[in-house]
Structure formats: C-alpha cells, structure tokens
Design a protein around this nucleic acid. Sequence first.
DNA 1: CCTACTTTCGGAAACGCTTCCATCACTTCG
DNA 2: CGAAGTGATGGAAGCGTTTCCGAAAGTAGG
Lengths: 330, 330
Amino acid sequence: MEDVAREAGVSMATASRALNNGTGVAEATRQRVLAAAERLSYVVSPEASRLAGGATGRVAVVVPHISRWFFAALLEGLESVLRAAELDVLLYHVGDIDDRHDFFHRLPARRKVDAVVVLAFPVGEEEQRRLELMGVTIIAAGGQHAAYPNVSIDDETAGRQAMDHLIFLGHRRIAMIAAVDPDQPGELAPSGRSNAYYAALCDAGIPIDDQLIVTVDWGGREGADAMAKLLSQREPPTAVYAHSDEVALGAIRTLRRAGLRIPQDVSVIGIDDHPLAELTDLTTVRQPVRQQGELAGRMLLDILRGEETDRGIVVPTQLVIRGSTAPPRS
Amino acid sequence: MEDVAREAGVSMATASRALNNGTGVAEATRQRVLAAAERLSYVVSPEASRLAGGATGRVAVVVPHISRWFFAALLEGLESVLRAAELDVLLYHVGDIDDRHDFFHRLPARRKVDAVVVLAFPVGEEEQRRLELMGVTIIAAGGQHAAYPNVSIDDETAGRQAMDHLIFLGHRRIAMIAAVDPDQPGELAPSGRSNAYYAALCDAGIPIDDQLIVTVDWGGREGADAMAKLLSQREPPTAVYAHSDEVALGAIRTLRRAGLRIPQDVSVIGIDDHPLAELTDLTTVRQPVRQQGELAGRMLLDILRGEETDRGIVVPTQLVIRGSTAPPRS
DNA sequence: CCTACTTTCGGAAACGCTTCCATCACTTCG
DNA sequence: CGAAGTGATGGAAGCGTTTCCGAAAGTAGG
C-alpha cells in the first residue's frame, strides 16, 4: 500500500481511506489512488486490514448437507454474488447437532468473518444472540426464520399448489410422505408443507386419514420405504404428495416395482423441481433455488453496507405439470 | 496472548513458540503455557498470526460446478477432514474459463491461503507454476493430473468395467454418449472413458461405428438429445454406454418416450453411481466420491505437515448391476 | 576451575493496514 | 478584511503475532 500511496502522491492514510470508500477524500484523489492501485495490481491484505480494525472480507456459510442438490444450488447462487462483491466464502458443513454446536461455539471466539449465512436450518435463540452480540451479521436462506433477515419460499403455498393440483384432478385419497431432517432436530414444529396438506384436504371437504400420512427421514430411499408402507394398506392412495422430489422419486421406484403405472394407477407429485425431476417426468412445484441464494447474497451485501433492505423476501413457487400426475381411474 | 504469557510467567516470544510447537522450548515450559492458554480459553488471532508470517490455516477449494452431485460430494468429503484438522475452507466457484483465469490471477496476489485444492478440472502448466512459485501447495481430486499430487479413479478402468459388462451380456451394437464440460475446455484430449470404449470394442473384435458415438455437453438434457440422435439412425444400438449417470438418465428418458423398454429393448449403463441411480434402477460403475474428497484432504494434511505421502492415489471402481442392463433380444 | 558449547528464553523489530488527531488551505459570513 | 468554519490530508500509534538475535544459564570436556 505504501507503493500505491507513493504512486498516487498521497499518504498511506489517504490511500487507505480512498480504497475503503471512506469519507473525507476528494473524488479526484480517490480516483488517482484507485488508478494507482489498479496499475500496481494491488489488493489490500485482509489480515492486516482486519488486524487494524477493518472488515475481514469473509463470510461464513453454514450448510447442513453439501451434497444435496438443494443446498448446493443455494450455495452456488450465494457464492456467485458474494464473490462478485470480492467477499470470500468460508464453508462450514454442520452435519449433525454436535457439529452445529461446535460451530457456534468456536466461530465467535475466532472472529474470522464479517457475517454468517445459514442455509436452510434452524438456529437457536441463544446461538443467534451469541452471534449478534459480537457484531456478526447473520442471515438465512432457504428456510423461514422470522428471527433474522432471510429469503425463502412459502412452504405452505408451495404445498397447496401441489395438493390443489391433485385435488383438482379429482383425487380424494391422497397420501403424504412428510420428510424431516434427522440431523437437524428442532424444527419439528409442523412444517408449512405439512400444514398445506391438512388445509387443502379440509378446504376440499375430504376427511383426513392418518393412515395416509407417513413421516420419514429425508431421502430417496426413505421415500421408497414410505411408499411401501402406504401400499401395504387395505385401501392404498390414488395419489401421493411428497415433501420433496427426491422422496417422490423414491416413491415412484417402489410403485414401479409393485407393477403400478404412473400416472395411470397412482399420481405422484413432489416439491423443488430438482434437475432430475425433469428427466424423470415428475410433476412438481418449482422453487427457484439458485435465485434464493443470490437474493440472500444481495441482502447480505446491503446489510453489510448499512443500507436499507427487505428483511424477509419470499420468492414465488410454481406448479410444473409433467407426466407423473393424472386424474384417478374412475 | 500477553495475558497467557503473564499467566504462565514467560515472555510473549516463548508463549508463541510454545503454542506453535516450535523448537527450543523446554517441555515443562510448554505445558505451563498450554495450560495457561487453556485456562484463559485463548485462541490465536489468525489475522495477526498470518500477518506476522505464520500460516493462514485456510485452504482454497476450487470447484467448477458446486451444484452437481459429484463435485458437492467430493467437497463434502474434503471439508470434513479439513475441518477436523482445524483448517478453514474457502470456496471458489470457477464456472467458466474467465472465472478460472480470474481466480488464478487474483488469488496469488492475496496470499490468503496455505494451499489450494482443485476439484476435477485441469489446471494449466503456467497456472500451476504460478502457484507453486509462491509456496502454495496445490493438489487435485477427482481428476487425473499427473502434474501434482492427486486422488482420482482410473477412468479407463471404470469405462472398461461398463463396456465389458455390456459386451459380456452379448451386445455388439453399443453406442457411447461422451460427455464434455463446456465450461472447461483444455482437457479435450481423449478421456479415459472414451478410450475404454475403443479398447473394449477392439478387444472384443467389434468394429467401431462412428455413427454410434455422440459427444455432448455434460448434463441430463444433453444426454436425452444424444439418445434422440442415436435413435434416428437406420440401425439403433441395443446398448448405450454413457459417460455419466446423469447423461444415462437423460438417455433413458428419451428411450421411454420413444416407447422402448429398458432393459428389454435397450440396455443403458452409466458411470458414477449417483444417488439417484439407485432410485432409477440404473446399472452403473460406482466410484467412491466422498472418499476421494477425504483422501485428498488427508493427503493435503500430510503435505502441509511436511510428511511423506503418496502423491497419486487411485481409488477402485466397481460395477453395480441393476435393472437397466440385460442381454439383447436375439 | 575455566573455556566452549548447547539450550532456553526475553527484547524488540517487523507484518500491512486503519484511524484518531492535528494541520493546512480554503470558504464564508459578519 | 479578519475570524470561524469546513473539507482534505498527513503523522503516528496501535492491532496481535512471529521471529531474529543476543543474553543467560546449564553441560561437558580439558
């Protein structure tokens, strides 16, 4: 930086101010400094900057399951805008509850980041307070947490879109395969996707049959198992509403093995619009995942800059009708 | 740290040495310092440490496509061991060639990491030299780059396992859908998976028909298109060897739409053993993806510690026979 | 008992930046 | 025309470590 200052003919103090968009620097001077920095292809040392009281230029992203498409896509979107803003992304995978505790226990002590973005999993009150107390910004994406700024879909609306489609087609015996994340207890409160099931059925005047509701751990194989359970009943459903595409795909596999045709014998609908949903001709409710990541990134940028911003964005979902749903055989 | 030094009754210099496993510190003194640090729950400031010449405790992971299962799984494995070793993971998504150039252009200037792990994509000679020159360790995972330490599968062997299975079943008219990454040109050299096709056919005395080879961009939809192209020929194949499961899944979708049954009319085999391969009953060649990430992490740790280590691990692949392959109709 | 080493440890100088405070050249108003 | 602002700039003190170098203390050999 010394070189830059000299090149621009100013002091280090001024150079620093210019580089950090600080106030009290004549526009002309700033341009001169910026030009000099460019010429010398200079970049501030984050270490020194942070040490001297500046920002780290780093944000931590906490994600429960990297290898699941949903999280990866969210991450991809987030990373793209963060990187464009010259921020570095620190990745933290918190698989189970222990990891999670560990993360929230450690990070604060080190103060390595300016902010943390939590991808689609609940953060306890205490954990949140702990972070906020030390001035780390925190935002969420892909899950609804009224507690802090976040962007997500409206799970209940998405669920309704799926359920209403099934009901509109004429189905009355509709099963639900609810998925929960085994590693992330806490949000066991009734999820929006489940509520949608009850509400839709209620509005349509269809009685609720507990037998038609199966709750499993999140995943394709689990979805397959759930479907098997559903098929073992006296009066199997004519349609299945799965909380996610992966689960739906699992259900379809079981149905196929059972010799049932889709959608002639049983209709199946999922949520997410996983890339493979298109390939497998699965009807689903699309949510713009990458976009949620991007929006979260922009929101974070705004907050970091101290600008006003929406503290709760809900992105729309949309029914995508493909070949896995049809009216029930009459 | 000052507090710790005082608490232990030594100077800061000694405290620092003790904390960093440096030499020239009496064992008793070291224990005293460590105890004091523990008592005060002290952790070194990474910023200050780095600024003064220590290591950053950070490693950059460069990945071309976060949201593809393969890369995400690799990343997950890598992250797990790196994190266990107290290293932080900086994530860099380099989508296209520009990003990539940008990355290699910028990172060195910042010196923010101790090492960089390149996930499954080629790095140019010059780029490599640039990194090595400045003392950043570099290793690769998920792709074969003899240039530096790496862990991967043997693509040719994997391809042979797939092809040999098809040939063993009696297929002679076998198509190949080769996949290339549109964003990462450079490795256009014949891939191991393609070589396997030629070699297997050659060994079996089956003539090669160029019409049966289609090269497409990587992806399910592209696989579907490729299959359509294959089906538009006078004499379509009885089996399809796809370079990856996603491509295979795309091919299957086209086959289904064309009213062809799998595996009775056409056999399809992929490579990777994507989680959805199991759900869709796709025969494939499994490669341990997460494990490759973990091995790469360990290898990096060894190198960083200055220990001897294998500089080229090849993990085995394995044929997984499911329902998408069968002998051809005679 | 003295000299020449070998260990162990403390002093202090970086490391590259931010920011408080003082300085200085102008404006502006009475 | 002078006093009181106002905005731009420079000087210098940290920020929390690591590491070079010299000093002190202990060991061994002569």
